[in-house]
Design a protein around this nucleic acid. Sequence first.
DNA 1: GTGCACATGTAATGTGTTACATGATTAT
DNA 2: ATAATCATGTAACACATTACATGTGCAC
Lengths: 186, 186
Amino acid sequence: MQTTTTLEYALLGLLRQKAQSGYDLRKTFATTAMRHYSDSPGSIYPALRRLEARGWIADRGEASTEPRDPRKRRIFALTEAGLKALVAWIGEPVTRDEVVLREAALMLRFAYMDGNVPRSVACRFLADFEREKAAYVAELRAQFEEMRSKFPLHTGVLAFQSGIEQMEAQLSWARSARARLAESVS
Amino acid sequence: MQTTTTLEYALLGLLRQKAQSGYDLRKTFATTAMRHYSDSPGSIYPALRRLEARGWIADRGEASTEPRDPRKRRIFALTEAGLKALVAWIGEPVTRDEVVLREAALMLRFAYMDGNVPRSVACRFLADFEREKAAYVAELRAQFEEMRSKFPLHTGVLAFQSGIEQMEAQLSWARSARARLAESVS
DNA sequence: GTGCACATGTAATGTGTTACATGATTAT
DNA sequence: ATAATCATGTAACACATTACATGTGCAC
């Protein structure tokens, strides 16, 4: 059992919303806020074939017996196994490691929660996120204050400050989002 | 002439601050806010050898004639060519592409400005950064408002909001940092 | 009928990851 | 003595990037 890349989960999540072709997926990556993921054919198509090989997605035209023309549009859809894998990934616990190093994957998981897991899971996710993030920010802030006292206008210190302020923005987003979600649950 | 990775520039910048060994550099990546960069030997040592091959860094012990024991501590220092390459990279114009897709590289360049380029360059950098970032956020915000009006509590929309709020935090950081730097210039 | 967007794919290349290997030095 | 840390390195592997290749369908 090999590991699954964030790109692969990104594709799974999009296919969960709607069965579509590799080209459609590329367009989404190229034109929406998911720009972060590469829209190059050299990344998308091989990733789709890996998912197909694992049985997580399937080509709808597969049923037909005649040899498939590789130049024809192929529409992919999530299989049951694929949905199971996606939901399992979404529900994984929030670790410090992810908060520190794999931010993008965390946000993607949260973005894909709607329609796949109950809202209470999203609330729980945010609570864990807040806890881990707050702990990490506190650590960084200690380092930062020490640096700032020595070199108040050093660009390195300013860059550091930017990172911290971004994390604090995330923290306050998480708190407000959780409050709003919690309201809608009750 | 091949491209230079962000990791390679990160190493150059650290060596600019202080001549040191690969192990020292790994420690920095492992323990400071530069965690983002891998501290694995499989990334650092090959990167150092690439930089050495390009003549951007040099082993201080190179002068000695006897065959070098590969298990001995090697202290690397920036060469003049390396400093030139670093300064050229730092001074590159801020492009929309970098703002949208290569955030980390941008912040690294800014962090390394102190001591390598005049403060006026840092101010200019921030001004360009603000312009490109503001334009991009405005685009995203248009998409976002449309989504929000349809699905106010969708986790995908909330995740999108988090991204926008982070960018806005960066924007206000840039404005405040620029004001402070501008004061110190005059 | 020429050009463009659609649509899928392959090949070469380079880099990061993981795991392993080696030996020196320091602390207990 | 022995364990941990210092210190550098290699090898296998997978993935993303870039560039290229191929062909369809539509608009003008």
